[in-house]
Amino acid sequence: MADVIDHPSRTAAAETRAATGYNFAYLDEQTKRMIRRAILKGVAVPGYQVPFGSREMPLPYGWGTGGIQVTAAVIGPDDTLKVIDQGADDTTNAVNIRSFFAKTAGVATTEKTVEASVIQTRHRIPETPLSEDQILVYQVPIPEPLRWLEPRETETRKMHALEEYGAMHVSLYEDIAKYGRITKSYNYPVKVNGRYVMSPSPIPKFDNPKMDRMPALQLFGAGREKRIYAVPPYTRVKSLDFEDHPFTIETWDQCCALCGAGDSYLDEVVTDDKGGKMYVCSDSDYCEQRREAGHVGDGGDPAYAARNQIPAGDAPAGDEPAGDEPAGDKQ
């Protein structure tokens, strides 16, 4: 039953080291050991933020230094890395981080979710369900879900220790009292394994249900805030809510204009200066896979759908407009 782990393939890794002059995956070994120990304790205490000695990376804090350090500590020469930024593989942050590891670790990279063994992400979870063989690494700007309620670290640490989360529930309730619903659309707080309240990073709340009992291991790195945390596979992750105001996710009236997907998170894209716009999948790989499989969207023309009779079941019924996608700082 046990998979034997033999010496990893060395050639590519050794060549990379010789060519770049950097240690494998950039970080020195002592830093990696420190990060690895933090990751293991994070897995042992799901949802708890383990402090770690975050290093200076060759890009500014706020651009994914936490995620990069976690990936650097985890990745090996036999891994295949995918990096996404708001779901897309082809945005600046994603392209740079991918090429950083291609250069410093010599690892294979991919844009296909199913081919990746390590996926580093900024603000999305891929639409394609992840498997047991994959590790999802989140870039986290503010790891402390209680930070906006209590600025003092000494206090929030005590609140976590005592499982004192009343303030969080009050803040969600205040939303309901003021607006009739919980208005938090991203970075929606979750409770992990019934104990720790955790920030899921600024993913849209649309992605929260994917975290629950996910077969893949989820690791979170916050570089500036120097915290690592984790959700082991098949662990309960519950979005905070109330019995009479249950948690709901965003829905759209539209399907993806390119691939017709009715089940994915959509980005609003402005197409001209006359108010023209279309909605497309935020997950570029998912959209690509669907288009390759022959799915076609309406190209942004609502009449198209009617003309070409896209099955109604494909389109979700919903009342909430899209467009409240994660903002926040670039992490």
Partner: peptide, 8 residues
């Protein structure tokens, strides 16, 4: 380097 990574 690589054996530590594989072990971890």
């Amino acid at each position: 380097v690589l054996d530590s990574q594989a072990t971890f």
